[in-house]
């Protein structure tokens, strides 16, 4: 999928190679920011992204691999673990509504 409305997001997954470090941290941040919203935030290694993930956040360089492994999810790439604008847009869409558009290209 290439886009989804923020209000339709029920499961947000942060994916990374190991599912041990960076994705864990970003997921913790998002869980905190979205704790009042009806959204489940999980972190997973790329190889085990659940098929019901509505949106998958990953480092931009991993987006192609994630798209291949999660064809039904909107994949959003980011570059910074702190204060990335792409991540902020997803958070805003969940909270206030608006469309989340998947990142295209690598």
């Amino acid at each position: 999928m290439s886009s989804i409305d923020g209000g339709d997001i029920r499961k947000l997954v942060v994916a990374c190679d190991a599912g041990m470090g960076s994705s864990v941290m970003l997921a913790a941040q998002l869980r905190r920011e979205l704790r009042k919203m009806p959204v489940i935030v999980e972190h997973h290694a790329i190889a085990s992204i659940p098929s019901d993930a509505d949106v998958v956040l990953c480092q931009a360089g991993l987006a192609d691999r994630v798209r291949a492994g999660a064809p039904r999810s909107v994949v959003v790439g980011f570059r910074m673990f702190l204060g990335d604008p792409a991540v902020a847009r997803v958070v805003a869409a969940v909270k206030q509504g608006g469309v989340v558009v998947g990142t295209t290209g690598g």
Partner: peptide
């Protein structure tokens, strides 16, 4: 390997080196 594949730099002068899924 993980560091070589992608930097573990986070921001604010902090990096978080760690292994890979297969090294758990």
């Amino acid at each position: 390997d993980r560091e070589w594949a992608m930097s573990t730099y986070l921001g604010e002068g902090v990096a978080i080196p760690h292994g890979l899924d297969k090294s758990r």
